[in-house]
Write a protein that binds this DNA or RNA. Sequence first.
RNA 1: GCACCCGUAGCUCAGUUGGAUAGAGCGUCAGUUUGCGGUACUGAAGGUCAGAGGUUCGAAUCCUCUCGGGUGUACCA
Length: 556
Amino acid sequence: MQEMNKALTSVVQDVFAADVTLEVTRPDEQFGDYATNVALQLARRLGKPPREIAEQLATALREQLGDRVQEVAIAGPGFINLRLSDGALAVQAAAAPHTKPQTYAGQVVVTEYSDPSAFKVLHAGHLYTSIVGDAIANVVAAMGGEVHRVNFGGDVGLHVGKTMWAIMQELGGEHPDKLAEIPDGEHADWMARCYVKGEQAYSDSEDAKAEIIDTNKRVYQVHATDDHDSPFAQIYWTCRKWSYDYFDAFYARIGSHFEKYYPESVTMPVGVETVQEQLEKGVYEKSDGAIVFRGEPYGLHTRVFINSQGLPTYEAKDVGLIMMKWADYHFDRSIIITDNAQMQYMEVVLKSIEQFAPELAQRTTHVTHGRVKLAGGVKMSSRKGNIVRAVDVLDAAADANKKAGHDSEVSSLGAVKYAFIKSRIGADIVYDPEESVSLEGNSGPYLQYAHARARSVLAKAGKTGGELADLDEHERSLARKISEYPEVLEKAVQELMPHHICTYLYELAQSFNRFYENAQVVGDPREATRLTLVALYADILKDGLGMLGIAAPDRM
RNA sequence: GCACCCGUAGCUCAGUUGGAUAGAGCGUCAGUUUGCGGUACUGAAGGUCAGAGGUUCGAAUCCUCUCGGGUGUACCA
């Protein structure tokens, strides 16, 4: 692709002495392997008919590319279509599984995602962010980035006040010893129930609300004084530990690994200090007793960073987080992945940071995704107890998988991951457990199965493949699709959109099935060539699924 | 009110740095196929790309407005 781009750019310069940012695309197969519309772009500038320009360029291209190209044709209003020679295509295809465009070579990249709140339950949205975040981090790492996966979460804040208040109600006061009565396996559920109770009380009762606000302050005090001894502190630290154990178990189940966890209690002091410092320099300002950043001059809105009670809000904690990430990694790129709801909020935070640390803001990319809805129109409501938990989604997949006659965590997890990644990031997604585990259609298990089947063919043949030469129609078509893999990865990493990989892998499988339908592999005179294609196909499936965090076992 | 995100076949989605007849899967209908793993392949039907203007040789893609769904909008995270 880049080669073609280069060749074209130089040809355009030679023939017309024009500088153009031209685009080489992968057209519909009937038109060739590569196409460009540069002649159409130049037509107006040069005052010539596009087809005439195309003819001149085509002639020059044929000369420049020599035997690497089989055909350079003009089509339609003035497209130049390029068809590679078998030799050139074979070279590309053979290298495809191992060619990784080094887009991020030498760059330190911090990816932050998942961001669960301690003392609260993990819901479907956390599962979505974690899966998408992993995929993005994997792709960046494969493209040469030195990736650091970090996680952020609220171990202080009003939600903790609510849960702690309810916990003490449940325990009948500040009795840390009574926590021992909660069975090991029920810690997370019990805390989730407490959160719901605290949440309910906060909105139903003025008295409870006042107590919760007070409890919240006490939690901040625990951190300020590094209190590990008081009964209240003991309850807090024990329950916080329970939360983190629960997170760890969940990440282990879905195969996520974070090298660092930034609790808000840790980023908070850094954030407060930074905001105070910049208050004096006029970046932030006081207003009604709070410290705010005024976004209106930038087309944004005003947000509170430190409230009138002197407590930092999420904004200040996030400022602290960004400063700490910088201090820890001196990243070239920082990628933050969250729900869409955070979009405008994050713009304000980053705009404020841009005022005193412009390079940090410039190096930060905020990627946002939609929400998870369940097929059938069930929505998630975060404020009530009827939320869809992360485990509910995983269990639904496992159940559907069992119903479909399969019983493996590898395929049900692959099903969920694939279903979540296959849609473009941005809009809400609809999750249908049955569809996700199906062996038919665009699903994770379909591709896992496709991979296992290809491996099985290779095992049956019991030998390695031969050269890719004199390709027939079906072989060539598959080889062409195989050769596209590195370009797809590059697109996915440039846009930070891993769904491109899903779309490609599925198209690749379709292409393979068409080939497989028409071409006997084992025992055929062309076995050697075809085995090579099968091997390349299997390798790409494995590599691509790996990028998505999906296992591709040789047998299922 | 203002800002932002989203709105493509019955359903779930690709296609969105403007380009060649808008593509898949599921579902529906009709064929082919038992040869390498539970199949798969071929074809048909199904679309005013939410709507209306505009820019352009060319718009699902860019601009404006309207409609619909969602989120955010000062001391929650």
